[in-house]
Every structure is written in C-alpha cells, then in structure tokens.
Write a protein that binds this DNA or RNA. Structure first.
Lengths: 165, 165
DNA sequence: CTGGACACGTGAACC
DNA sequence: TGGTTCACGTGTCCA
C-alpha cells in the first residue's frame, strides 16, 4: 500500500518440486518482479540505481542461501518437515549422529586391530592393511579447533577446503 | 522514510560473541523495536492487531531459524566464514566428508572382521565383540527413507521442538 | 478464518 | 567508498 506493488506472483512456495530448481530455471523472480516493476523506471534515476543495486544484491544473496539450504536438505536423509528451520535442525541431529557413529566405529576398529596384533604379533600388517588406518588421523573432524579465535583461520580453512574438494 | 522508523540499533552483526545469545538475553529486539514503535499505538486498532500478530510471528520465526543456524555452526568444526550461506555450505561439505569417512571405516571394519574370521574360524566372537557391529545396522543414516511422504510426521517434529526449546 | 511459512524491498552497519 | 550482509516489517499464500 505504501510501497510499490510488488506482486511477484510467486507461484508455489519456497521450493517448487523440491529438488528441481537448483541453479537452472530461476527465471521467475528475474522476469516477474524486476523487469516489470522496477529496473530504473518510475523512479528518479539518481537513487534508483543504488536502490536497484541493493535490491539485486539482496535478491542474489537470498537465492544463494536458499540454494545452500536446499542442498543441505538433499544431503541429509530423513527430513522431518519441509521447513527451513526444520531442515537445519535435522542437519544438526544428523551431524551429531554421524559424529557419534564415527567415534563408535573408530573404537571398534581400534579394538579389532589391537586384538589382531595381540593374537599375531609378528605379522606383516603393513603389506595387507589398506592404508586407511593412517589416513584417519588427518581427517577434519578429529582436530576440534578451540572455537575461540575467529581470526587467522581463513588461510588454513581455505587450503583445507581446496585440498579436500 | 515510508515505513515507521524501526531503528532497532542492533549493535553488531548477526551474532554478538558468536555463542552467547542462544536463548537468553534476547531483550534487544523486544525492548527497542517492539514496545517503543509498534505494539498497538499510533495505528488504528483494527489493522494494528493483525499486523502486530504477523510481525511478532515473523520475528519469532526469524529468531528460530537464526538459532538453528547458530547451532549448526557450532556443530560443524570448521567454519570458513561467519556467513549464513557459508555456514550451510560448510555443513554440507562436513556432512559429505563424514559420510565418506563412515563408508571407509565400515569397509575397513568388514575387512578386519572377515580376515579375523578367516584366520580363526571357530572363535567365540559373540562374547568378545562389544555389540557395536549389530547396532550399526539400526542407525538413522542407513535407512534412507523414500523422501516422498511429508505427512504424518508433524506430531513427531512438534513434540521434539517443544522438548528442546 | 486463523496461524505459519515464505519472498520481497529497504535502510542500516560493517569492511 | 562500494560491496556485502543483515534484520526488519509487510503482503501473500496455504493448510
């Protein structure tokens, strides 16, 4: 009523068909809302450019977060509700579940390995073991950063991210 | 200019001191923004109630998603940036990393166990094994729901939400 | 019809 | 300084 009539006509909800609009066919907001109502018309050109810039940036940011949230949802099995907050909540529970299970599996591996070494002490295990036991020390979830200094970790994280992916 | 001057004066950014305002001391928005500018004053009482109701619900929803996102950030050990989208992105990478590591560990466990059984076939492994091998079949990430029926899970999620907060 | 969830534009703050 | 991120209020839609 007081602002411009931004009836974008967003057809369904947050996600139409739930996995199908990841990065393609995002033409609904760009066609309906921007080029018809805004985009340097019916506004004086001095402040319209910065407003349009801010608007476009905000639109991009919103879409990026929604895409990430959607990708998170498809990375997590067993989603309780198709909500944003529920998606994050289920992801948290799933992460904690995976962490606990990993601790369990590692304890079990250590148990099995120690038992095997105890039973057969002179065995040549370096030949047969598939290198997985040494590589699990360098995993990212075993480091547990102290989480108190948000500085100077950018370089480490960046090198790790590019090293893994 | 066209809306009411909602200068809430939010002191820093999305999160002040990053873990300290989980559910306590959220009095900044409730004191500054709501009770001074809105809350059934300087508006005609007919539409102000529904607007205030919608506003309050939206505020609650926003805070809930932010809390979940913050909890997700503290569940993920390595955060690249203190962004919302980056938080979700790092969570996705961490989840995929954990899933891959879990497959690796399970393969290794199967390898060790089959080797142990092959080497000592008549061993009483039911006594010594610490029950972990049977319980890993019933984990939640091994079930892989078909992800097609979003019904009849409302009660479960709701009772969990009220139990947590 | 009411409550909940969402996208939107906008001003402000940070870097 | 400009770009980026954020919270906010509002209108709309749907169960």
């Amino acid at each position: 009523m007081e602002t411009i009539e931004n009836i974008a006509g967003y057809q369904n909800y947050w996600e139409t068909t739930s996995v199908l609009w990841n990065d393609e066919l995002n033409s609904w907001a760009m066609d309906q809302a921007s080029t018809q109502c805004y985009d340097s018309s019916l506004l004086d050109g001095a402040a319209s450019t910065i407003a349009s810039k801010n608007m476009d940036s905000e639109r991009k940011r919103r879409k990026k977060l929604n895409d990430k949230l959607l990708a998170l949802r498809e990375a997590v099995p067993k989603i309780s509700k198709l909500d944003k907050a529920s998606t994050v909540k289920d992801a948290i529970e799933y992460i904690q579940d995976l962490q606990e299970q990993e601790r369990t599996l590692q304890a079990e591996i250590m148990e099995l390995e120690s038992e095997r070494l105890k039973k057969d002490p002179g065995y040549d295990f370096e030949q047969e073991l598939p290198v997985l036991l040494r590589s699990k020390r360098t995993r990212s979830d075993q480091i547990y950063y102290p989480m108190s200094y948000p500085i100077e970790v950018h370089e480490v994280s960046y090198s790790f991210c590019t090293g893994v992916t």
